[in-house]
Simulated assay, not measured.
Amino acid sequence: MIFAIFIAAAIVVIFAAIQLNKYGDVISQKSTWSGAMVGTLLIGGATSLPELTTSLTAVYIDNADIAVGNMLGSNVFNVLILMIFDFIYRKQKVFNTVDQSTHVPIAYTGLIMTALLAVSLLWQNTPDLFNVGMEMYLLVAIYIIVMRKAGEPEEEAEEPTSSLTLNQGVTRFIIAALIVFAAGSALAIYGDLIAKETGMNASFVGSFLIAASTSLPELVTVLAAFRIMNYSLAIGSILGSNLFNLQLLVVTDFFYRKDAILNVAAQSNVTVALLGFVMIALTIFALQRISVKRVFTYAIPSSVTVILYFVASYIMF
């Protein structure tokens, strides 16, 4: 029964995430926001909703490792998704075709935030205010500053191609987001039950198994964006989702009233944080490097990222 509900929830999430991408593209066409901004702020936030439910559930059952590991692991899995598609579509040289002005600052922000979390996890005795780690307040401050600057509209809007109006696109986007929230939450909860029956440790379950389940909306969103060749939307949705996940970690820490949550989380979460740092650094390299002619050379960052992920998974398992 648990497996049946899990599969049913996965099917619903796939359908809803496709609609999320579709109506996000309508908003991009009919508003002054670019595809990168729609991906970063709207789709990135909406597809992160299952992670929030999973981590809050972990807080409720007093499992800090699943709560923290889910957020960090989801970010790692998100980058893996992007790099796998980049490798599959390597002949298109995706990272060389998008505008860097939006994506690079967001990527660097994710890099800094992940480094901050890694240091806090290593420290394990960071100062707190109202049982919320000081690093969490820094995450919020950084996010607000960067998003205010990145959210400025572009001077030229994309030529509309959809028959839907902006209001229709926004309304249907919200409906799809609510469906993702409900079905994605069920996916996370029943994924957790399945994982517990296997007897695996909490850090691995949170960082890899549950994180992969809650990242299903991002997977479908990126797939849909690549199929319509809206690469900026795909990259923006992943980078934006990662930043939003870290803000959800702040919310998780707020509800974990015993102590600052990173002071309680196991040291094994440091491995995931460091893996995320390296994978984001490789993404930044792929975005900023000079265009290369050889497909083999272009695919090196994505290939290294995929290998690193599976090596780290094996080590933690």
Rank of each mutant, 00 (worst) to 15 (best):
F255G: 08
S213N: 13
Y231P: 02
G206T: 08
V250S: 03
S232V: 03
L209R: 05
L246I: 07
S203T: 15
F244H: 01
Y256C: 12
V251Y: 04
I235W: 02
A225L: 11
L223Q: 04
I235N: 00
N201Q: 12
L243D: 01
A225K: 10
M200F: 13
T252D: 03
L233G: 05
M200K: 11
R257A: 14
Y256P: 10
E197N: 15
S213P: 04
F204P: 03
S207G: 13
P217T: 12
F226H: 09
S232Q: 12
G240V: 08
N245A: 10
S215H: 11
F255H: 06
N230Y: 00
V205K: 11
I235S: 00
D253P: 09
F255L: 15
G236R: 07
S207R: 02
R227N: 12
L209E: 04
L216G: 05
L209K: 06
S207W: 02
S241P: 05
L219H: 07
K258A: 15
S241D: 09
F208L: 14
V250E: 01
N245F: 05
L239E: 03
S213D: 08
T252N: 02
A224K: 08
G240A: 10
I235T: 01
I210L: 14
R227Y: 12
N245I: 03
N245S: 06
K196W: 00
